[in-house]
């Protein structure tokens, strides 16, 4: 077992546990776009940042790839972390506004303006599809090509891959195209519309009767605009 400090708590975790897994286990929520339990961690989206160490030597690391180590001091919600996370979300919105997942996450973290020029990318290069294809489907049909700003995900020579079995795993796991946001078509890339939904059960009961997040009714579009906005 490994002993470490997480947000001030002394905790014990199994060997080979990552900081993200440890935080999850102890009920601390850390956002991430490129992480999936079933796939190997990749550390590309940088949203799961946590601060390790103290004083001048503290630094931010991606919790999904950082292994728990004895004596490590981890803080998941420091000012530095939140600031970085918010700006990154703003960048995500400016790059790929049509993703419902990103819009939801931005709303949840209180990102309400975008100061960068608007792009309309379809892909955030989180690599979930690449890992899904290789690790779960044994496909190896798609991968990263080029580097830097020219980096893309594609099949070899941008032609239909012989390895591809059309299983659809890549589309299933994609945070950018799986749930496309119908939201803002106008100038403003932030809609915050999803925030304004409230479960329809509140019409009949004084408290919400289920704890599904997000609410299935809302997901289906039968939820209504809330009386109180947050």
């Amino acid at each position: 077992m490994i002993n470490l400090t997480l947000n001030g708590m002394e905790i014990k975790v199994e060997k080979r546990t990552t900081l993200l897994e440890a935080a999850k286990f102890y009920g601390i929520e850390i956002p991430a776009l490129c992480y999936d339990e079933a796939l190997s961690p990749y550390g590309a989206c940088r949203l799961c940042l946590v601060e390790i160490g103290t004083g001048n030597h503290s630094r931010l690391v991606s919790s999904c790839t950082y292994p728990a180590r004895d004596g490590l001091i981890v803080r998941t919600h420091t000012e530095r972390v939140i600031k970085a996370r918010k700006l990154l979300l703003e960048l995500y919105l400016a790059t790929c506004p049509s993703s419902r997942t990103i819009q939801d996450m931005a709303s949840k973290h209180g990102v309400t303006t975008v100061r960068f020029k608007q792009k309309n990318e379809e892909c955030i290069l989180c690599g979930l599809c690449v890992r899904m294809c290789a690790e779960q489907m044994q496909g190896k049909a798609i991968g990263f090509v080029n580097r830097g700003i020219k980096r893309r995900i594609t099949a070899p020579f941008a032609k239909k891959s012989e390895e591809c079995r059309l299983c659809g795993g890549c589309m299933y796991i994609c945070p950018a195209c799986q749930a496309r946001c119908q939201g803002p078509q106008e100038e403003n890339p932030v809609c915050n519309a999803c925030l304004n939904l409230s479960p329809p059960c509140l019409d009949y009961f004084q408290e919400a009767m289920c704890y599904m997040d997000p609410c299935v009714a809302c997901e289906l579009g039968t939820g209504r605009k809330a009386k109180f906005t947050y």
Binding site: A141, G143, V145, N146, R147, F157
Partner: peptide, 25 residues
């Protein structure tokens, strides 16, 4: 040449995408 890369992938049992990734990186 594309056909050589495809051949290499087949002969040496390396996924073509891995070769293509390296070739473009």
């Amino acid at each position: 040449p594309e056909e050589i890369l495809r051949e290499i992938a087949k002969e040496r049992d390396i996924p073509l995408i891995d070769i293509y990734s390296v070739a473009t990186f």
